[in-house]
Computed example of a mutant assay.
Amino acid sequence: MKNVILFDLDGTLTDPQQGITRAIQHAQQKLGEQVETMEELRSFIGPPLQQSFQERGYSEDKTTAAITYFREYFAVKGMFENEVYDGIERMLQRLKEQNYVLAIATSKPEVYANDILAHFQLADYFDVIVGSELDGRRTAKAEVIEEVLVRLVVPASSCVMIGDRKHDMIGARHHQIEAIGVTYGYGSKRELLEAGASHICNTVHELNQLLEKAYVSEV
């Protein structure tokens, strides 16, 4: 019986595009680089920040500097340049009424995840909120999920993971957890299926219907 639901945060519960891309632009400006457009920076949404910078050819030192500048903006303003997808709070409320255990499993630093969820008055829906550490530890999604399992003291077989990028699917697969991919965030259907998604939902409404049909009846 799957009675524990793990949610990614960015691109799954909230749309963080404005805040994240503006924080990246701030870092690029500080580094004296050409500032890219919001559309060009969409790929930063979802993966661990360090990974995204390194995939663009940044050295270790430059990546460290870029993350520092990113956080200058993000910690003060960027995290709140964000919005909850329509229907998310109603879905969370319904799941709690059905006695689900809900968790956040995000590669975003845990301190930011807590602040964002508190700001949008969503924190109380979650039994645990797990993210990465500011010092770079626990950024891989498999590590984040492992920490969720430890804190909740639940078996992986009782869980399902919901996310919008391949990292969510790969992390879930590492623990043999069923994964649901959502395309209203920042990953494509192809990306999610190739990474191991067992179901694809294109809207929050479709996700709600899937959970109702596949899982709520089991609780």
Rank of each mutant, 00 (worst) to 15 (best):
residue 104 I to D: 03
residue 106 T to R: 05
residue 107 S to W: 06
residue 108 K to L: 11
residue 109 P to K: 12
residue 109 P to F: 05
residue 110 E to S: 11
residue 111 V to R: 10
residue 111 V to Y: 01
residue 113 A to Q: 07
residue 113 A to T: 07
residue 116 I to T: 13
residue 116 I to L: 11
residue 118 A to L: 14
residue 118 A to R: 15
residue 119 H to S: 14
residue 119 H to V: 10
residue 119 H to R: 15
residue 120 F to R: 10
residue 120 F to E: 12
residue 121 Q to L: 12
residue 121 Q to M: 13
residue 122 L to H: 10
residue 122 L to Y: 08
residue 123 A to G: 13
residue 124 D to A: 15
residue 124 D to S: 15
residue 125 Y to C: 10
residue 126 F to D: 11
residue 126 F to G: 13
residue 126 F to N: 13
residue 127 D to L: 05
residue 127 D to Q: 12
residue 129 I to M: 08
residue 129 I to C: 08
residue 129 I to E: 12
residue 131 G to W: 13
residue 131 G to T: 08
residue 131 G to K: 02
residue 131 G to V: 08
residue 133 E to S: 14
residue 133 E to L: 14
residue 133 E to T: 12
residue 134 L to K: 14
residue 134 L to P: 12
residue 134 L to Y: 11
residue 134 L to I: 14
residue 135 D to Q: 10
residue 135 D to T: 09
residue 136 G to S: 11
residue 139 T to H: 09
residue 139 T to V: 15
residue 141 K to N: 05
residue 141 K to T: 13
residue 142 A to T: 03
residue 143 E to D: 15
residue 143 E to T: 14
residue 144 V to M: 12
residue 145 I to E: 01
residue 145 I to P: 07
residue 146 E to S: 11
residue 146 E to N: 08
residue 147 E to K: 14
residue 147 E to H: 14
residue 147 E to L: 07
residue 147 E to R: 09
residue 148 V to T: 10
residue 150 V to E: 15
residue 151 R to G: 02
residue 152 L to K: 01
residue 152 L to Q: 07
residue 154 V to I: 12
residue 155 P to D: 14
residue 155 P to H: 00
residue 155 P to C: 06
residue 156 A to S: 15
residue 156 A to L: 05
residue 157 S to H: 02
residue 157 S to L: 07
residue 158 S to E: 15
residue 160 V to I: 15
residue 162 I to M: 05
residue 163 G to E: 00
residue 166 K to N: 07
residue 167 H to W: 13
residue 167 H to G: 00
residue 167 H to N: 11
residue 168 D to N: 02
residue 168 D to Y: 08
residue 168 D to H: 07
residue 169 M to K: 01
residue 170 I to Q: 12
residue 171 G to S: 02
residue 172 A to I: 09
residue 174 H to A: 10
residue 175 H to R: 01
residue 176 Q to E: 13
residue 177 I to Q: 07
residue 178 E to L: 10
residue 178 E to N: 01
residue 178 E to D: 08
residue 179 A to W: 00
residue 179 A to D: 05
residue 180 I to G: 07
residue 180 I to A: 04
residue 181 G to P: 02
residue 181 G to V: 03
residue 182 V to K: 11
residue 182 V to Q: 13
residue 182 V to G: 06
residue 183 T to D: 03
residue 183 T to M: 02
residue 183 T to Y: 03
residue 184 Y to R: 03
residue 184 Y to G: 03
residue 185 G to M: 08
residue 185 G to H: 07
residue 186 Y to L: 05
residue 186 Y to Q: 06
residue 187 G to F: 08
residue 187 G to Y: 00
residue 188 S to M: 04
residue 189 K to Y: 01
residue 189 K to T: 13
residue 190 R to W: 00
residue 190 R to Y: 04
residue 191 E to L: 06
